[in-house]
């Protein structure tokens, strides 16, 4: 067994990371800290997961959310998708292995992967709504969020969800509030089989190696670690029995990458756009200098009255 994160003391504690440890901040530039904090990670061992949903209930309780009691639609996923009130979800896939003809019930805990190269953050136009700490955690800062939904477009895993109540985006925080005071994520704490473990990224990779050896000894020749390089690696990783086909686990992307549109937007387009804006501003100024300020004519007034109709009378 992986040694569980010990219970912390109950006295007041100073957070282990904060503003000074920001590596990235959406739509703004930050000076990254001179030294990175040790990278953390959560490892989800799909082969040990029994689909009990203890992680989901711990997530609801720790984050104090109130998901809706839905209907049964003939599946085991409840709620039926990630929601602004459900940051993690067990996804169940019944897969018939063509090599063995055996049924495999693949159960994957879905949620934010905490990408090293976070597409959500890159897509976000609101300054400081999404931040990345140097330990790898990608967090949403709700008071800065404008609810535009660009983070959803930017996410290669389709994770964030916009709340219809406060119009801001929600996702797993990797329990940044717990980790800041030396506790592990709530889901890892609740997991009865240690399918979810938490520690430094290096420890997690090492632990995964042992698990993969065990799986290979049980005939899963393609067992492996899911730490996709397309997003610079992730701070939530999976041990998969069939790492050669991640897509069988309820559509886990085979080679996730940030959408080219987002990359383009934040790359070339951003500068091109700024240039266009600059040109427009300069044009406007020149127009003023040449033609003077715009005046409201009588025709303009009449047109406005037609548009507002009876309300003016």
């Amino acid at each position: 067994m992986f040694p569980p994160v010990p219970n912390p003391s109950t006295g007041p504690q100073n957070p282990k990371f904060g503003e000074n440890d920001l590596m990235r901040r959406s739509a703004s530039s930050v000076t990254p800290p001179a030294e990175r904090q040790t990278e953390v990670a959560k490892l989800i061992d799909v082969s040990k997961c029994i689909g009990c949903k203890a992680c989901q209930s711990a997530c609801i309780e720790w984050n104090d959310t109130h998901p809706e009691i839905e209907e049964n639609t003939g599946v085991f996923e409840n709620p039926h998708d990630l929601t602004p009130d459900m940051f993690t979800l067990m996804r169940f896939t019944e897969w018939e292995n063509p090599e063995t003809n055996n049924l495999e019930w693949l159960i994957r805990k879905d949620g934010c992967m905490h990408c090293e190269d976070p597409g959500c953050l890159k897509a976000c136009p609101a300054p400081g709504a999404i931040v990345q700490y140097s330990n790898g955690i990608v967090d949403f800062v709700h008071e800065n969020c404008i609810g535009c939904g660009y983070c959803i477009k930017g996410c290669p895993f389709n994770i964030p969800r916009i709340s219809q109540v406060d119009h801001t985006a929600y996702k797993c925080t990797l329990c940044s509030d717990r980790i800041a005071v030396g506790q592990g994520p709530a889901c890892a704490k609740a997991c009865p089989t240690q399918a979810i473990v938490y520690g430094t990224k290096e420890e997690m990779k090492k632990h995964a190696e042992g698990r993969i050896t065990d799986l290979k000894s049980r005939g899963f020749a393609n067992a492996g670690l899911y730490d996709p390089p397309g997003v610079g690696g992730t701070h939530v990783m999976y041990v998969l029995h069939h790492a050669d086909k991640p897509e069988i686990y309820a559509g886990l992307p085979n080679d996730p990458r940030i959408s080219p549109i987002v990359e383009a937007w934040k790359g070339v387009t951003k500068y091109a756009g700024l240039a266009v804006m600059g040109v427009a501003a300069v044009t406007g100024f020149l127009h003023y200098m040449v033609n003077g300020p715009n005046r409201v004519t009588e025709e303009d007034e009449e047109a406005a009255e037609r548009l507002t109709g009876d309300r003016s009378s």
Partner: peptide, 23 residues
């Protein structure tokens, strides 16, 4: 089912969310 304990936890909102309806 794992989401519930007998006829008790259907009285609890969280468990009801995780397995809401008879099937």
């Amino acid at each position: 089912l794992t989401e519930h304990f007998h006829y008790w936890t259907k009285h609890v909102h969280v468990n009801a969310v995780l397995q809401p309806e008879f099937f």
